[in-house]
Every structure is written in C-alpha cells, then in structure tokens.
Design a protein around this nucleic acid. Structure first.
Lengths: 124, 124
DNA sequence: ATTATACGAAACCATTTGGTTTCGTGTCAA
DNA sequence: TTGACACGAAACCAAATGGTTTCGTATAAT
C-alpha cells in the first residue's frame, strides 16, 4: 500500500480563514455543499474546492445523499496540531511566569508546570 | 499610529514546514542568520525571508549584535492557536468517548454526540 | 587601509493558491 | 418525460508563495 502522498496537511488546511470558517460551520451539523456555500462570499465551486482540501487533510468527511454531498467535521486530525503546540507551551509559560501571570483552567498547562522538562519533537 | 496591517498571521506562519523547523531550532537558543541557515537546504536569503514572516506573526524576535542579526523564539502568539484549538477539543473527545464505549451502533446517539451545540466562536 | 563577513534589498522566476466561468452528469420533482 | 437542482471537472486567470542571484552597505579582522 503506497503512502497517500497527501497534498494538504492539517497545518496548511487551517492556514486559510475560509477553511477555518468552514470547520466552525460544520461543527454544528452535517451540511450539503450549496447550503454551506450560502455562508460565504464566493462561488459554490470555490467552497467545494476548500472542502476538498479539508477532506484531504482528514478534517471533514463527505457523504453522498441523493444528489447532495453532505460534509461534516472530523476533528481528530487536530490532535496533531495539539501535540505540536504542546512542545511550545513551556516557552510561553516561562515568559508568563516571569510576568507572574497564570493562564489556568487547563489540565495540560498544569501538567507542564509540574513537568517542565518534558520535551517532545514537535514535527513528526 | 496605523495598524501594522499584519500580512502574515500565526496560522499562515506555521503552515510552512521550513518555518516550523525554524521555530524548533530557535527554541534552544538565539542564533544569527547564517548559523540558522546552515541547517536548511536553501539559500541564506530564503531563510531570512522565512524569518521575516515569522517575525511578522510575532513568533520570533530579532536583535542586532554587531554585524549579526540574532533571532530567538517568541512563543506567546501560539496561545491564539491554542485558544482556537480548544474550541474543537470537545469534538474529538466526544469521538474518543464513542469509540471507548462502543456505542456506534445507535444512530441517534451517534448523531447527537457528533453534533453538539456550538458554544464559542473559535475564530477571533 | 584593505579585505572578509553578515546581512538585507531588489529583481527575477516557476509554481501554487484561490478564485472565476462554463459545461456535463446524476438525481429529484411535475 | 421534461425540467430543475446539486454537484464536480475542467479550463482559465491574477496574485501570492517560495525560491534564486546579484548587489550594496555596515561591521569586524588583518
């Protein structure tokens, strides 16, 4: 089985504001393309292309229903982003500690405060 | 004082693998441009451009020392990313719960779990 | 004083990106 | 069966992106 040669990864997929808006919209419910595109100031075809990019990154799933193609959010690939981000938490926390400030109410934050030397290679 | 008209935001800045590599490299220490560029298979000028993009997004700071320009990581802007991400945590967490409890056979339950109510506007 | 080093600016280039319009096809409705 | 609707594919386009090379200038070293 060959590697999918995935053209768009999560980082690229979320780089575009339109695509972030799409993810937000699809969080609520599965929607067909025309309904989705009514929320955007561009053609249905353009929105469709963005959806395909999101699908390539695994961030949405499509389902054919009659003549419609319905899309829904698929959030798991964002875990890669979260993992990447966690590598950098200690940096901004050090800075914030200097300023004697706390960005609280987050389990991961707490964990890193107590394990400040835990380091993971952020990319791949 | 005019608004900087920031051309590159954090999302765009981290979309490029070279720039993510740069952030990783600069986490360890402040470095001058030539030393940085020795880690990349491209010209110093190209690396310099990437650094400027990162600087525009606030992810690195530069400091002139003699004839050198030294760069260091500035992690705070990644907090915006963390905040954006946190909106989607409940989606993948719900999905993981579904898998954990083996309740995927029930379509109604799955529907509700997959499409929870919107709470916070994730973008801006 | 001269030469070498570190760097940015500028011009340039190929490819990618984000959009458009047009057209073909499958599906639903009258 | 005849439209109307939902959609993707394809061709096309301007602008952005990621790279190059060349050159000028400030600083450091000899």
């Amino acid at each position: 089985m060959a590697i999918p040669a995935q053209k768009y990864d999560v980082f690229q997929a979320i780089a575009d504001p339109t695509r972030r808006h799409l993810l937000q919209l699809l969080g609520d419910q599965e929607m067909p393309v025309t309904a989705i595109s009514s929320h955007f100031p561009m053609s249905r075809t353009a929105v469709s292309k963005h959806l395909r990019i999101l699908a390539e990154a695994g961030l949405v799933k499509e389902r054919k229903v009659g003549r419609e193609t319905r899309y829904r959010l698929e959030a798991e690939p964002l875990l890669e982003l979260k993992r990447w981000l966690s590598f950098y938490e200690r940096y901004w926390e050090n800075k914030l500690n200097v300023l004697k400030r706390f960005v609280e109410q987050d389990d991961d934050t707490t964990e890193l405060i107590f394990n400040p030397l835990k380091v993971v290679d952020p990319d791949k």
